[in-house]
Amino acid sequence: MSSTFETIANIIAETCDIPRDSITPESHAINDLGIDSLDFLDIAFAIDKAFGIKLPLEQWTQEVSDGKATTDQYFVLKNLAARIDELVAAKGA
Protein backbone atom coordinates (compact mmCIF):
# COMPACT_ATOMS: atom_id res chain seq x y z
CA MET A 1 0.00 0.00 0.00
CA SER A 2 1.37 3.41 -0.93
CA SER A 3 1.98 5.99 1.77
CA THR A 4 -0.29 8.93 2.31
CA PHE A 5 2.31 11.24 0.81
CA GLU A 6 2.66 9.05 -2.27
CA THR A 7 -1.08 9.07 -2.78
CA ILE A 8 -1.45 12.83 -2.53
CA ALA A 9 1.65 13.43 -4.66
CA ASN A 10 0.16 11.25 -7.38
CA ILE A 11 -3.17 13.09 -7.09
CA ILE A 12 -1.43 16.45 -7.43
CA ALA A 13 0.66 15.28 -10.38
CA GLU A 14 -2.39 13.99 -12.20
CA THR A 15 -4.76 16.83 -11.30
CA CYS A 16 -2.39 19.72 -11.95
CA ASP A 17 -0.15 18.19 -14.61
CA ILE A 18 2.93 18.68 -12.44
CA PRO A 19 5.87 16.27 -12.97
CA ARG A 20 5.68 13.70 -10.19
CA ASP A 21 9.42 13.83 -9.48
CA SER A 22 9.19 17.56 -8.70
CA ILE A 23 6.79 16.90 -5.84
CA THR A 24 8.51 16.19 -2.52
CA PRO A 25 7.36 15.95 1.09
CA GLU A 26 8.88 19.41 1.62
CA SER A 27 6.93 20.98 -1.26
CA HIS A 28 4.48 23.73 -0.37
CA ALA A 29 1.40 23.20 -2.51
CA ILE A 30 0.86 26.92 -3.06
CA ASN A 31 4.29 28.51 -2.82
CA ASP A 32 6.38 25.79 -4.47
CA LEU A 33 3.96 23.99 -6.76
CA GLY A 34 1.87 27.03 -7.72
CA ILE A 35 -1.44 25.32 -7.06
CA ASP A 36 -4.29 27.83 -6.93
CA SER A 37 -7.49 27.59 -4.93
CA LEU A 38 -9.53 26.19 -7.80
CA ASP A 39 -7.06 23.42 -8.52
CA PHE A 40 -6.93 22.71 -4.81
CA LEU A 41 -10.68 22.04 -4.85
CA ASP A 42 -10.04 19.26 -7.38
CA ILE A 43 -7.22 17.95 -5.22
CA ALA A 44 -9.39 18.08 -2.10
CA PHE A 45 -12.15 16.19 -3.93
CA ALA A 46 -9.70 13.49 -5.00
CA ILE A 47 -8.22 13.26 -1.49
CA ASP A 48 -11.67 13.12 0.11
CA LYS A 49 -12.59 10.25 -2.20
CA ALA A 50 -9.29 8.40 -1.85
CA PHE A 51 -9.26 8.48 1.95
CA GLY A 52 -12.98 8.60 2.72
CA ILE A 53 -12.63 11.83 4.66
CA LYS A 54 -13.62 15.49 4.40
CA LEU A 55 -10.65 17.82 4.45
CA PRO A 56 -11.73 20.76 6.62
CA LEU A 57 -10.58 23.38 4.13
CA GLU A 58 -12.83 26.11 5.45
CA GLN A 59 -11.57 25.61 9.00
CA TRP A 60 -7.96 25.63 7.85
CA THR A 61 -8.46 28.75 5.77
CA GLN A 62 -10.10 30.50 8.70
CA GLU A 63 -7.27 29.54 11.04
CA VAL A 64 -4.72 30.95 8.60
CA SER A 65 -6.77 34.14 8.14
CA ASP A 66 -7.02 34.55 11.91
CA GLY A 67 -3.28 34.08 12.36
CA LYS A 68 -3.82 30.92 14.41
CA ALA A 69 -1.98 28.74 11.89
CA THR A 70 0.44 29.10 9.03
CA THR A 71 -0.11 27.79 5.53
CA ASP A 72 2.93 25.56 6.11
CA GLN A 73 0.97 23.54 8.65
CA TYR A 74 -1.59 22.49 6.06
CA PHE A 75 -0.03 22.93 2.65
CA VAL A 76 3.51 21.59 3.01
CA LEU A 77 2.83 18.11 1.75
CA LYS A 78 4.37 16.14 4.61
CA ASN A 79 2.19 18.17 6.97
CA LEU A 80 -0.84 17.70 4.77
CA ALA A 81 -0.19 13.97 4.81
CA ALA A 82 -0.01 14.06 8.61
CA ARG A 83 -3.32 15.94 8.80
CA ILE A 84 -4.89 13.36 6.50
CA ASP A 85 -3.58 10.52 8.66
CA GLU A 86 -5.13 12.21 11.70
CA LEU A 87 -8.49 12.53 9.93
CA VAL A 88 -8.40 8.91 8.83
CA ALA A 89 -7.53 7.80 12.36
CA ALA A 90 -10.29 9.95 13.85
CA LYS A 91 -12.77 8.46 11.41
CA GLY A 92 -11.81 4.94 12.40
CA ALA A 93 -11.87 5.66 16.14
Binding site: F45, D48, L55
Partner: peptide, 9 residues
Protein backbone atom coordinates in the same frame (compact mmCIF):
# COMPACT_ATOMS: atom_id res chain seq x y z
CA UNK B 1 -21.99 13.34 -5.46
CA UNK B 2 -19.72 14.98 -2.88
CA UNK B 3 -20.35 17.51 -0.13
CA UNK B 4 -16.90 18.93 0.57
CA UNK B 5 -15.71 21.65 2.92
CA UNK B 6 -16.60 24.84 1.10
CA UNK B 7 -17.40 23.12 -2.16
CA UNK B 8 -19.81 20.62 -3.67
CA UNK B 9 -19.58 18.34 -6.70
Amino acid sequence: VHDGSGYAV
